[in-house]
């Protein structure tokens, strides 16, 4: 029996993904991702800072997700909601766990390091912000060009040159999110807003190109048998391949 969801997809099909890079001129790197109706924009800005004494030569990379009230009537104006804070932490965990940006690469000279701020804003919320945010973050980082910094030896003067160098991104951890309903049976990939709202639980699997898992995030919810976990990991593997291909195509089009 083939189950059809409310938008006509089958359980293992993701929505159409569109990635657009470099649209924000004021940021060093930017990306706009549209997955179905969920729209996420990401901008990378950099500032110079002094590294911490306990980790000399290590730069900083801070990811922050904002869910403003304009994206969905559920979000009220005010301080960041618990959902945006927990997704921000999830994104930071992915960056540290996967080592996609090595912090020592961000060092310039001596104590001086780059502090990169990856700011992600959700413009329209139609479920599954996590996957789209991860894609936006990766697309923006791979297309980030930082100006070359030189420190003159005599007076320590910092010079920012016009030349830009591309940030080295070592791997692309891609996330696939599944939801499942109360009866524990029907697992669906890439939930829409209604599917996410009614779900009994959520499962996010993050994979890297070399096949290793970066984060298997199942924050409570109804229990899942091991067989379902394994099935989801296998499906995530095949679906992530499409995403890696998409990211690669985007990078290549930008270079040409």
């Amino acid at each position: 029996m083939v189950l059809e969801r409310s938008d006509g997809r089958d359980c293992w099909k993701t929505r159409r993904t569109i990635i657009n890079v470099g649209s924000i001129g004021t940021a060093y790197g930017s990306a706009l991702v549209r997955r179905g109706k969920t729209t996420i924009v990401c901008g990378v800005k950099g500032e110079l800072a002094n590294s911490r004494p306990e980790n000399p030569g290590d730069g900083f990379l801070v990811v922050n997700l904002d869910l403003p009230p304009l994206c969905c009537p559920l979000f009220k104006p005010g301080p960041p909601s618990e959902q945006s804070q927990s997704i921000s932490q999830f994104l930071n965990d992915i960056v540290t766990s996967s080592g996609c940006v090595v912090l020592s690469d961000l060092s310039i000279e001596g104590q001086l390091v780059w502090c990169l701020f990856v700011d992600i804003i959700c413009l329209e919320y139609d479920g599954n912000v996590i996957d789209a945010a991860v894609l936006a973050m990766l697309a923006a980082l791979t297309n980030t060009k930082l100006p070359k910094i030189t420190v003159s030896n005599d007076n320590g003067e910092i010079k920012v040159s016009e030349a830009l160098e591309i940030l080295a991104v070592k791997s692309q951890p891609v996330t696939t999110t599944f939801v499942y309903q109360q009866d524990g049976g029907h697992v669906m990939v890439d939930p829409s807003f209604e599917e996410e709202y009614d779900a009994a639980g959520i499962l996010s699997i993050t994979l890297q190109e070399d096949g290793s898992l970066v984060k298997l995030y199942k924050p409570g919810g109804l229990q899942l048998p091991d067989s379902v976990l394994e099935q989801c990991i296998a499906k995530a593997r095949s679906l992530s391949k499409d995403m890696w291909h998409l990211l690669k195509t985007v990078s290549e089009t930008v270079e040409t």
Binding site: T96, S212, K215, K218, P219
Partner: peptide
Amino acid sequence: EVITSNTQGSYSE
């Protein structure tokens, strides 16, 4: 059965 899973770092299946 597993209710919750949270991981850090990269690993194989």
